[in-house]
Amino acid sequence: MSAAIHVSRVRTLYKLIFRVHRALPPELRILGDNYAREEFKRHKNCNPQEANIFLNEWTDYAINLAKQMKPLHQAKRKTVGKYLNPKLLDHMTDEQLVQLYELHKATSLQSDDSDQINVSNKDSTDR
């Protein structure tokens, strides 16, 4: 693949991810945008084999998320994301495992914060 085609593919995918993120709830959109931005920066100078894997995985992510953001899917399931196959953890580097854990903490914190906000909003409306 020529360099110009590769750069064009990366830019198109990058823009698509941010476009799909627009349909996410605000707190998930911020988290997703920041994570995608950092990952693309981190892989800017990777070797061609890693770049191919990286682009394929992010393409799958964008396709899956776009399907989940369709109104019909949202009306039926009201869920976003999918479970990670535990067998994949065996193939991850220590750095990837730490990053996955940090992402888990960030999403758990977001969830806890929104629950607290909902509870405090409910308390104030009950009065």
Results as ranks from 00 to 15, higher is better:
Ser108Lys: 03
Glu38Pro: 02
Leu72Trp: 15
Asn121Met: 06
Gln74Cys: 02
Thr125Leu: 04
Gln49Ala: 10
His6Arg: 13
Ala3Gly: 02
Ile63Met: 07
Leu89Met: 15
Ser114Asp: 05
Asn118Ala: 13
Pro26Lys: 00
His43Pro: 00
Asp33Asn: 12
His6Tyr: 12
Glu39Leu: 02
Ile117Pro: 00
Asn56Ile: 12
Gln99Ile: 08
Met69Ala: 15
Arg29Gly: 01
Glu50Asp: 08
Asn118Tyr: 07
Gln110Asp: 03
Ile30Gln: 04
Asp123His: 00
His43Arg: 00
Arg22Ala: 11
Thr59Val: 04
Lys82His: 08
Leu65Gly: 03
Val98Trp: 10
Thr79Tyr: 00
Pro48Ser: 09
Leu88Val: 14
Val10Pro: 06
Lys105Leu: 15
Lys15Trp: 14
Gly81Ala: 04
His21Phe: 10
Asp33Leu: 07
Tyr35Asp: 04
Gln49Tyr: 08
Arg19Ser: 11
Gln68Phe: 00
Arg22Asn: 13
Arg42Phe: 01
Pro25Ser: 07
Gln110Lys: 01
Leu16Lys: 07
His91Lys: 13
Asn118Gln: 11
Asn64Gln: 13
Gln49Leu: 10
Ala75Asp: 14
Tyr14Ile: 02
Met92Val: 07
His73Lys: 10
Leu100Lys: 05
Ala66Ser: 13
Leu89Gln: 12
Thr93Val: 09
Ile117Thr: 11
Ala36Asn: 09
Tyr83Thr: 15
Val10Cys: 13
Ala23Tyr: 12
Tyr14Ser: 03
Asn47Pro: 01
Ala51Lys: 11
Tyr101Phe: 14
Leu72Cys: 14
Asp94Lys: 05
Val80Asp: 01
